[in-house]
Design a protein around this nucleic acid. Structure first.
Lengths: 338, 338
DNA sequence: GTGAAAGCGCTAACAA
DNA sequence: TTGTTAGCGCTTTCAC
């Protein structure tokens, strides 16, 4: 209980060797005799010694830990992302820890303080609230990979999704299947910065224009937090206000789930009365009724690429920044007609 | 870019004061003259200094960070939990970081190594794969609160859910609404240790017995990872094998979502042919079609209590361990009949 | 193959 | 109000 923490010194004294030898044993360095190693390990075990990672880090700079910064823990997208990354890193014997920045700029900047970031060997940053200028202020001497949509300074390594083509694909599919009055739920035509909502609204708008349809502003239904509840409430509002639609492109699957509920509330059947397409291909989307037609951003590849970029920087501080663009594909399920 | 990290020493030299004064300013200690403070802050700003948290931690032992260890990032339950905790901690100006232990004992033990835990001021541990003996080996001189079901050594502070009564409530509700052949999806009658699945199966079994119904073993459908996909596949299997049921108690809402899909696949209507109750009251559960009747574990209170126990230990290392038991309530929605 | 010395960047304790 | 000293526990460097 109250007993003092066992340090390397204690082990060294007990084993009758120097701390350096203990350190060498614990770090699997080659320059230790076999029976010395054996003996040290025995003592380590007996005393229940565990290395102090803080001290190691202070001295060596290495932590064995990668940080993932996400806007929110409770958006399923980030949970699935974190899970994939964590599993992939485990193969490299590294640990993932996840922090939530909150979607607000203030909390994001705080999570992003150099002080916090420097605790990691590398950082995967999925930041939504920051603009170029913010990112430009961060000058961590530390590997970072940006995951996401926004424009970022060229010096950043970055993996991003093909948002506009993905949204276009979704919308074209709705048009192909006969929808003509297609709303974009969660889209934004204008915003202070380009972001997921504007990119995906642009793809929607492009597809409509190509098909000779009018991307009317009243078909663009912006959201704040992209939660299921918000999406359901907003679509209920616009339907009650008399908006007539036969298709919905929801900017995320989570938004689509809300739309599904809201449409059902209004007595509209999916896909018979209104067809619906999402974006993200969450695990759950295959298991809704009806199954959700959606855009698959090939997360496994995005994760693999992110980690590749991270490893490159880990190996070579001055690796030239790379921009990787993912692929998107359409997954057709029951929420659109045959 | 390659420029060396700015240290407190640099700031001190540049400002013409000692490092202690810089430290005092940055920690808002009262013993600094106003114009000295002002000047130091200016220099800090000009040089872009940020404190090295690793060094601070090594010296002071405080980190300002709480760790939450969860089995998986991609189970919605933990995402919602993490989100609640993160927001609550922000009010105390503390940060939450989340680690995934993986449901396997090995990875759990690794995430739980003293070395890793000691990086935090306190740890909230939602461990599923550990037993008493494992937990007994952990002797961190560090505040821990266990969240969860299992029996734990008395010296631990702990918040747990009323699993058995909750499961009983769910099952009684099914019986009240007319179900008679009620399966427990994800339940286990026997297991090496008491765990969520056994507790909830016990509540199910108790309720059946009380009602004079037979808790037949073939009504207990165990699961491995409690994913939506697995739940859907398993219920499809047992239905195909000829199991006749008119009610399902799913041990989690996530499992219930899979059950909903599987029942639909089999051409069974919910709640007309088969009634369904979950457990957890996830955000999404209100937005399914039909809405999911479920057990609400009052997560906000559980989170508040967990943080209270943590703060108690932070303030007094020797605070007597407390066991807090949450309350459960039934939330009735469309997946059970009226 | 092993060990002694130095110091990573900060803060606790005490002195001035 | 400010500064000096010591040292958190480890790893780097270099000597033996």
């Amino acid at each position: 209980m109250g007993r003092r923490t066992v340090t390397m010194n204690d082990v060294a004294r007990e084993a009758g060797v120097s701390v350096m030898t203990v350190s060498n044993v614990l770090n699997d360095r080659s320059n230790v005799g076999p029976e010395t190693r054996q003996h040290v390990l025995e003592v380590v075990d007996r005393l229940g010694y565990e290395v102090n990672l803080t001290a190691r880090r202070l001295r060596s700079g290495r932590t064995g830990t990668v940080g993932l910064i996400v806007p929110r823990f409770d958006l399923h997208y980030y949970g699935e992302l974190a899970s994939l990354i964590s599993d992939a890193l485990a193969a490299d014997r590294m640990h993932l820890v996840v922090e939530q920045s909150g979607a607000s700029r203030e909390r994001e900047l705080s999570a992003l303080s150099l002080a916090r970031l420097q605790q990691y060997d590398g950082v995967l940053l999925s930041a939504v609230g920051l603009d170029m200028a913010d990112l430009d202020r961060i000058h961590p001497d530390l590997p970072i990979v940006l995951l996401g949509e926004q424009d970022v300074p060229d010096r950043y390594h970055r993996v991003h999704m093909r948002n506009v083509p993905g949204a276009r694909l979704a919308t074209e599919h709705l048009i192909t299947r006969g929808a003509r009055r297609i709303a974009v739920l969660g889209g934004k035509l204008t915003a202070p910065r380009q972001e997921m909502a504007t990119h995906r609204a642009n793809g929607w708008s492009d597809a409509l224009a190509d098909a000779g349809l009018d991307p009317r502003p009243d078909l663009v239904i912006p959201l704040q937090d992209y939660s299921i509840a918000e999406a359901r409430a907003r679509i209920t509002d616009v339907l009650a206000a008399g908006l007539e639609i036969d298709g919905v492109f929801a900017v995320t699957d989570e938004v689509a789930i809300g739309a599904l509920a809201g449409l059902h509330d209004a007595g509209l059947r999916v896909p018979d009365d209104v067809q619906l397409v999402g974006f993200d291909n969450l695990d759950i989307s295959a298991h809704l009724t009806p199954g959700l037609t959606t855009i698959d951003p090939d997360r496994p590849t995005m994760v693999a690429e992110s980690l590749r970029l991270l490893r490159r920087q880990l190996e070579d501080k001055n690796a030239a920044p790379e921009h990787v663009v993912g692929t998107v594909s359409l997954v057709i399920r029951g929420s659109t007609r045959n």
